[in-house]
Simulated scan of single mutants.
Amino acid sequence: MITQIIYQHKNRKGMGNMIAAVIQMNCEPGNIRKNVAAARDFIRKAADKGAEWAVLPELFQTGYLLGGRDREYAGPVPGGEALCWMEETAREFGIMLTGGIIEEQGGKLYDTAVTVSQHGLLGAYRKIHLWGGEKERFTPGNDTGTPMDCGNWKIGMQICYEAGFPEGARLQVLKGANALAYVAAFGAARAEVWDLATRARALENGCYVLASDRCGTEPCGTKFAGRSRIVAPDGTILAQVEEGEGIAVAKLELSNIQQQRAVLPYLKDLRTDLIAAAWQKWANGSERG
């Protein structure tokens, strides 16, 4: 199981209400030095604004499409150059970071989201639902994930296309998550899906969603949607980067989670017994169309 708690994180403010940021950046495929320099600058700006947690896009260090060179830029988790850079940067700015990297384990490559603090790796999540050509590049994960215990905050991770799969988010929340991080390289051609899905995942689960997407266009012509945002538990967009590079910062308040879950008690009223039984029947083939 890849998801694991390496360190029970306590930040400098005790993890009550928290200032968080999402980073929207363009990435040059294969130009690690340029990409991490840009990421570091955005992280510094987020920390200067008081952010205690910042979320970076999917494959932010390498760029998204690497022309068959994925293995060249992959590394193990824990360890590996990409993860070490994140840990060093988290220590430098005293901040928690979430971002997407290419993981290599046992000869297999994974599209993986990781979260680190200044004390080291907190957890990792391998993308389960692979989009299009990703199926030829990566091995899908086989663990739905466990939220990271960060004091009063329980943080779950999802990746890009998975914004459209409510099951993963709901499972994380049922396990205790009150904030979900989505690292993404979501295409501009389906920007309206990103808009709807990120707000829906927050509303239906009564949790915060921090969704960091790429911007710009890669040499192959793939254009990214941007619209990185922080969404409140009632589906309201608290902060968003509209176009181009930038950061969005907002305050996450625990009381808003409690209030929203009282107003719309989806989690309380969810018939987990019935749903679990129905899924089991479907998995066994007895209720398939």
Rank of each mutant, 00 (worst) to 15 (best):
L254G: 07
Q258N: 12
W53I: 01
A20V: 13
W85C: 00
N152M: 11
M15I: 07
E167V: 07
L270M: 14
N178W: 06
E87M: 15
K49A: 14
T144G: 10
G120W: 02
N142F: 01
G106H: 07
V114D: 02
F42P: 03
L130E: 06
A54P: 04
D195G: 11
E253V: 10
R44D: 10
M25S: 04
G164W: 09
W194L: 13
R137G: 02
T144P: 13
K49F: 03
E253C: 13
G244T: 05
G156A: 11
M18W: 06
L121M: 10
E58M: 09
F42Q: 08
R214A: 01
R190Q: 10
D213V: 07
A283T: 12
G123V: 03
V231D: 07
C150P: 00
R91F: 04
Q172W: 00
I2Y: 15
C150F: 03
L109N: 10
R126A: 02
G120S: 05
G80A: 07
T198W: 05
S228T: 04
K49D: 06
A197S: 14
A248Q: 03
T62N: 11
M15C: 15
M1Y: 06
E162K: 09
A124R: 12
L174D: 11
F186T: 04
Y208Q: 00
V209C: 13
W53C: 00
T222C: 03
D195V: 11
P166Y: 05
G226L: 00
I128F: 00
N205Q: 06
Y125Q: 11
C220E: 14
P265V: 06
H9W: 13
G133N: 13
F42W: 12
H119I: 03
P76R: 04
V116Q: 05
Q260L: 04
A51E: 08
G156N: 09
D70S: 10
E162C: 08
D213I: 01
A232Q: 07
A20M: 12
Y7S: 09
Y64L: 05
E81M: 06
A20I: 06
L122P: 13
